[in-house]
Design a protein around this nucleic acid. Structure first.
Lengths: 269, 269
DNA sequence: GGTTATTTGTACGAACAATTT
DNA sequence: GAAATTGTTCGTACAAATAAC
């Protein structure tokens, strides 16, 4: 199907799961409406290329204003399920993509998402009077700033996946107040979130290097074996720096999937 | 600075580049306002942690409604320059991150962005009666669908960077109507965009493999040398599949930078 | 600690502009 | 050229969260 093609617009009420919006205070109306339409799409009532009812019609169907409808459509457009064309209407997208924010998962969550069972072993725990030079370069940490250094080995289903070093400013660590003992098998990001520093943004670089003797031993691979070298700088919603992660993952046991997209249309759409 | 901290709110008019909004039809008011505030942030008039004037005040300052102000703030929040807190206000973020959509750059653009000079050499051009099995798996192309296969060597500043195979459905290729001769040194994505199929979304996987004899020769590396194996499936805004890319890049000459983030707040924010 | 004021979040109605059919 | 549809913008009102007293 090409851009110019289109299908009939669904004005038929029965196509829509109608009349279920409640002003219960739990969820905004626009979010409820978005979920209803989303389920119509994912369940196949609305198929790729279909034109949705117009914003006016949707408002009438569900007894809400056009603003609310636009809020709902904005969610779906943001999630990549629909797109809109001025003068034409709102159209269900082709469905090839796995529409999912790249996410900001910790390694625990990543492994679980891939169907594995994560396990981490704490190798070392220390308070440094100054961050390593590497970390200063990567995430602009100040010299002389006290940091926690957490070194862990990561296993997936009892196979070594990689090594992980996390540097966390002492002032952050102090506020979340965790006993090093409790880190074992716990998601670091989960702990940070519970302490009021929920990870929200991250900058990451991915390189490949070859294992030196020390790393090769620890990763149980021959010397020179390719490993991903992954650095990650993590921030809260407020832009507060919370972690600098230096990670080595075996290249034979790890791969990346990404979803890039350009969203413009920041306003309700 | 911690989440609870804050600075004074700027109600001082002189801090804002005021009175420049025009209903000229070229740009919506909210976008103009967003640009004004953005420049105040990037130029340092508004610093990290600062509270912006309230939505009401901004509206009065610029003579626009609160809806328009919210549109502008929505843009900036989306771009990661500010965040908002109910009951408190709108706050300028810390400025560590390079706020940039991950982007959907072709290899030409990537090289240029890194300060290099891209060059591509066309190795082969063919019309296949069916996509390779690999491509069928990666991007769900149908057996029997005619595709164009474009094989190119990519150089950055006259050094070999990698090999690139692009598979494009014949029906798309036919519509953009390009002479294979003209692909040389051109950005494929640029050509696609000119033909009405602007790349908008992509799904990508990154793995590391070791070069076999053939690839090693072509990439000018020893056998077994680690190379990035990068597959990419590209779609338009409408969700129309336009390209399946299979790429091999030398791991010593390539690295990835990513910016992940969680944006919720789909409505104007 | 509770109350009040402030500020953003959600939602309504209405009108016109820009684009496509 | 006319009709239909989304895009932008106004005014207004109340809810929910935060901050100040």
């Amino acid at each position: 199907m090409q851009p110019g093609d289109q299908k009939n617009r669904f004005t038929n009420i029965t196509f829509i799961n109608h009349g279920n919006l409640r002003k219960n205070g739990l969820m905004p109306l626009y979010a409820q409406l978005a979920d209803l339409i989303r389920s119509d799409i994912t369940k196949g009532k609305l198929k790729k290329g279909d034109l949705l009812p117009t914003e006016k019609e949707l408002g009438q169907l569900y007894g809400v204003s056009r603003i609310t409808v636009r809020g709902a459509l904005g969610v779906l457009a943001y999630d990549g399920l629909i797109f809109r064309k001025k003068g034409r209407g709102t159209i269900v997208k082709q469905d090839k993509l796995t529409r999912q924010v790249p996410g900001l998962l910790g390694i625990h969550e990543e492994i679980r998402a891939a169907g594995g069972t994560p396990r981490t072993k704490l190798v070392s725990f220390a308070i440094l009077s100054s961050p390593p030079v590497k970390a200063q370069k990567i995430c602009g940490m100040e010299r002389g700033e006290k940091v926690i250094k957490l070194e862990r080995v990561v296993y997936s289903d009892n196979e070594i996946l990689g090594l992980s070093v996390a540097l966390i400013p002492l002032c952050i660590w102090g506020r979340i107040g965790i006993d090093p003992e409790h880190i074992k098998n716990k998601s670091l990001y989960h702990l940070l979130a519970k302490g009021g520093f929920q990870p929200f943004e991250a900058e990451e670089t991915i390189e490949v290097i070859r294992a030196d003797k020390e790393n090769a031993t620890r990763l149980d691979v021959p010397r020179g074996f390719p490993v991903f070298y992954l650095t990650r700088t993590v921030y809260t919603k407020e832009g507060i720096f919370v972690e600098c992660g230096l990670n080595l993952y075996r290249a034979d046991k790890y791969q990346f999937k990404m979803h890039h997209w350009r969203v413009m249309d920041p306003q309700q759409k």
